[in-house]
Design a protein around this nucleic acid. Structure first.
Lengths: 124, 124, 124, 124
DNA sequence: GTGGTCTAGACCACA
DNA sequence: GTGGTCTAGACCACA
């Protein structure tokens, strides 16, 4: 399970959305798996249920999960929805690379920044 | 001159700041050049003059431009400003890498995207 | 037999009710036929027995089926039930028309859609 | 402007979403037009600003409108987004027609229901 | 002024 | 128990 960083400035809601997208990308959750209930996740993260609800609504509108009243929320088997998310992530990243290039940063330095950030992750 | 994208979600103020930084990086404006007046730029972009004013203040605090009372704002020749710009670019890029990582993109793929974009530049 | 679509957002209970009504309309079940037991259907559909029970109660209150203590539920031969089914169908259809109208679809287009679908039937 | 029916059972939020979609379909609002502010619409409809906010978020996620912090919300010029909404409406309506047909309703009766509902509108 | 996020808490339908 | 909607009200960034 992922962790929230309340001080990061990134909306809690988005952190939850991204957390589950990453979990699916990593294979930690798969199509058909039941999501934790809105209330239980809110308790676990010590946030308001409405915030979790909003995150789940975003995931559902993106086709990543679906909800059944009275039963719970489940990971969708719509792979195109998940790949659409990754496509957008790639395109956002490309824009960031172009912006960095335009300001004069070299490819070697960008590669180094990436490796530093990913190495940092390994430590955790 | 650069264009504003109101739909992008990026604050107008930031877009103006980044636009001038990029113009300087690309050599479209140089040390000593006079900046457009706050009023004229606000009219041109159809935005609130306060927003342009704020962007100029940020550029000035970063040493990119300087203002002379009664005459206007000018592009600075302060070389230390250049490194500040690069720092800002690096920090923006780091944020983009973290965002991509959070969505499950691997470092290898990011490195590949960078190399593709920089190779494309060589062709030009 | 019909299938349930958990992702559709339509309450499971309603889907079961509609499924049997449709089966009767299509002649797949007839007056006197025994209904599957609540438990067996719940197992088959992997839903809560209470949900099937509720669906059967709705079907019974509509005169579509009747239950005999200790023996099970059976398809009714009550003709008045048929008109109740049609009433329900009409009211569902009216809701669909209102929804389409609210989104700006015109009556001419709706009439055309109907005619297209019914012409398609003639071919079969 | 459209009106809300608080007794209808249809979520207020959806009524607002559909209201604007219909207004766009009818040409009452066009690409680039500024939407009423969240607060002013909440006041006008006597509903909570959060409810309007949610409706606007749904419209934005569907590409119907876009928001600019500090400036307001505007009708998008993404026509494909609007036609996607209409496409879904058509497909929902087709499903309703098929369901009605399967239960034995004739095309003449369905056409009559449509005309009755649309005539009712004319009176208003 | 504008939109965006979040908490707190109520109430509903559905299983 | 589950998710969904809504109100009330606070606080934030941005223009």
């Amino acid at each position: 399970m992922f962790v929230l960083d309340l001080k990061s400035g990134v909306p809690i809601c988005d952190q939850i959305v991204n957390g589950f997208i990453k979990m699916k990308a990593l294979g930690l959750i798969s199509a058909g798996d039941q999501m934790p209930s809105v209330r239980s996740l809110a308790l676990k993260f010590s946030v308001n249920p409405n915030t979790v609800q909003k995150a789940y609504a975003i995931l559902e509108s993106g086709g990543i999960i679906y909800s059944v009243k009275g039963r719970g929320s489940f990971v969708s088997d719509d792979e195109s929805a998940h790949s659409a998310v990754l496509d957008r992530a790639r395109s956002d990243f490309k824009a960031a690379v172009s912006a960095a290039r335009d300001l004069g940063l070299g490819s070697l330095e960008l590669n180094k920044i990436i490796n530093d950030i990913y190495k940092e992750e390994e430590k955790c």
